[in-house]
Structure formats: C-alpha cells, structure tokens
Amino acid sequence: MQRRDALGGAEFAPGTTYLNSASSGLLPARSAAALRAAVEESVSYGTMGRDYFAAAHASRAAFARLLDVPAERVAVGSSVAVQSAFVAGSLPAGAEVLAPEGDFSSLLNPFAAHPGIKLRTVPLEALADEVRPGTALVAFSAVQSLDGRIADMAAVREAARAHGARTYLDITQAAGWLPLRAADFDFVVAGAFKWLLCPRGTTFMAFGGDLGRGGEWPAALHAGWVAGEDLGASTYGPIRPAADARRFDEPHAYLSYVGAEQSLGLLAELGVAAVHAHNTALADHYRAGLADQGLTPRPAPGSAIVSTPGIADAEQRLTEAGVRVSVRGGLLRAAFHLYNSTDDVDRLLALLR
C-alpha cells in the first residue's frame, strides 16, 4: 500500500500518536492561536469579545458551505442533546420515533425522556424496513459511534418519505470526513468537536426538506434574545423570532466559535473528498494489519472508525506508550483522521502485536 503522510501539515504536531478523533478531535494551530488572542482580548473587552456574533456567523457560513446547504438554514448551538430535545418538542403528542438500537445517548435519550413520545428501536440494518405509516420521525446517526458502521442513509430517507415520516440525522461522527447529502434530511445535527476539529461547545443544526420553506418553521421552543429578528429589540420581553434558522440559535459559547471559524476554514481548504480518501485508506491499512494478526474488527465497510473485540485490555498499555485510542462496549476503537499517517497505524499495530 502507498504510504500516506498526514494532511494537516504545520497545523498539527501532537505529542501523542492520536487515534481518538471519534472521542474528540485535535485543535489546529490556527484555531489555538485565535483562541489565545480571544482570551487575551477578553481581559479588556469582556467574555463576549469585541463582536460576540462575528465568529458564530462566520462558522455558520463555513459549516453550511461544507455541507452544501444555505447558511440561512443553519442554527448554532451547544450540544446534540439540546437539539434532540428541540426536535422531540416539535412532534405531536403520541408520536412514534424510530431509531437504531444502541445509537448515541445524546441523540436518543431526549426522545426516550419525552412523556409524549413513543421511542421504538430496531437493529441499524433493519431501520429502513421498519419505517411504518405510524412513524412520525426516524432519528439515527450517519456513522455509529460504537463501531463505525455507516447507515444506509438513502434507504432510510426513501422509506421515511414513502410513509410521510420526517428524518433526523446526526452527523457528529461523519461531518468532516464522509461526503453527505444533508439537504435530503429534515433535521441534521453535528457536534463539531470531533471530526470537524472545533472546540467543545460548538454544535450546528441544519434544516432540509420543506422545513421553513414558505415561512412555516417548527416552534422556536428555546428561543432567547439571540434568536430574535431584531437583536437590538430582543433583550426584554417576548421576541419576534428571526425569519430564518437563526430563530433556533442558542446563546453560543463565544470562545468555542472563535476556534470553530478557523477549524472549519482548514477543512474547507483541504476538502471533504481528500479527507475521506485519506482517512479510509488508513483505516483499510489498519484492518489489513489486524487480519495479519488474526484479529477481526466489527464490520464497518468504508468507515474511518475501526472497533475490534478481544483486545480492549491493550488500552492501558497503548496509553502508556503515548498512543491514544478508546474502548467502547468492550471494543478497542481507533479512529483515523487527517493528522494521522501510515506510520501512526504501523505503530499501533506493532504495539498490539
């Protein structure tokens, strides 16, 4: 196999062999520099900076370009769980939500906890077949956090359309490396602190389908002053929500979005297609090395995440050797991103051997 160097160049110089992007991504040098400057600025200008909205608006636009959706159909927030609770609150009483078994808790738990919702879970592979006339929403991750399995997004989308159900797609483990058709889904959420390389506290929600077209949006259930059409007139009393998806904005963590603007800029320069080719080639190299050692990871064709049973006890030894991976559900999970190289994969394989 052709050896692959990291794509990040001078943006990354980690002191570890970092193979844990499925937990959180590394911060690019340009993002760290912007954060340092913003922290220094806050000494004289406060914790909202000189311009509280500039970085958030720029990040919104950068995320929209990355997913090829209009910026006015993107809201900024703080966590996937908050956005899931918003989606849950937009459904009618008694609505059935269909989801994969074992999907990430931040996606599923707000539906399970909502008293007016019936959550039904099925195996991921059966998700499209299990959509039925009574299903109001199909909520699922594009890529499973546990083992990297990629959902058949097209099949789920078509099944939902056939039965009049809306779709809620979590791209937290996909955005930044997996090419996506976000506009095909009604609600699309991304926790941006993993593959999008943003600081934690950066989350985006994109609206596809017919949501908001003609001015008919779901109720802005958590709208505060930042969601007002006229920000200068939205600080006291009930507000008039913005005409576009900004009506769903949360008061954002200023510093997180200062870093996000820079991180998303780097990904735009590299291109998702190039990152996808790089990441999946490294993952395939790792799978081949595991096979040489008689080890079989969970099947997840085409994924940048590789989770393997039977070797979870190696995590402590790997950590001590400066190799960062994670254990989830008894599986040793390695995740390959733009700052990784073939040398990183070979080091991991050598230590497992």
Rank of each mutant, 00 (worst) to 15 (best):
L98N: 00
L98Y: 00
E40P: 05
V87N: 09
L66T: 15
R60V: 05
F53K: 07
A81K: 08
P70S: 10
V39L: 15
V69I: 12
D103V: 13
S59T: 15
Y52W: 15
P70M: 13
Y52I: 04
R65N: 12
Y52L: 01
E96Y: 04
Y52S: 10
V74Q: 03
P70N: 04
E101A: 15
P92L: 09
G46C: 00
A81W: 04
G89R: 04
S44V: 03
P92E: 02
D68W: 03
M48D: 10
R50W: 04
L67D: 06
P100I: 01
M48R: 15
A56H: 04
A85H: 13
S78I: 12
L67W: 06
R73I: 01
S106C: 06
G77M: 07
F63R: 07
A54G: 12
H57I: 10
V76W: 08
V82S: 10
P92T: 07
E41M: 03
G94C: 00
E96L: 15
V80S: 11
F104A: 11
F63S: 04
H57C: 04
S90C: 13
R60T: 13
R65W: 05
L67S: 08
A58Q: 15
F63V: 13
F86D: 09
G49A: 07
R50N: 01
P92N: 06
A58W: 02
L66C: 11
D68K: 15
F53P: 04
V76K: 13
F53M: 06
R60H: 07
F63K: 14
A99L: 05
V87E: 04
F104Y: 13
R73D: 08
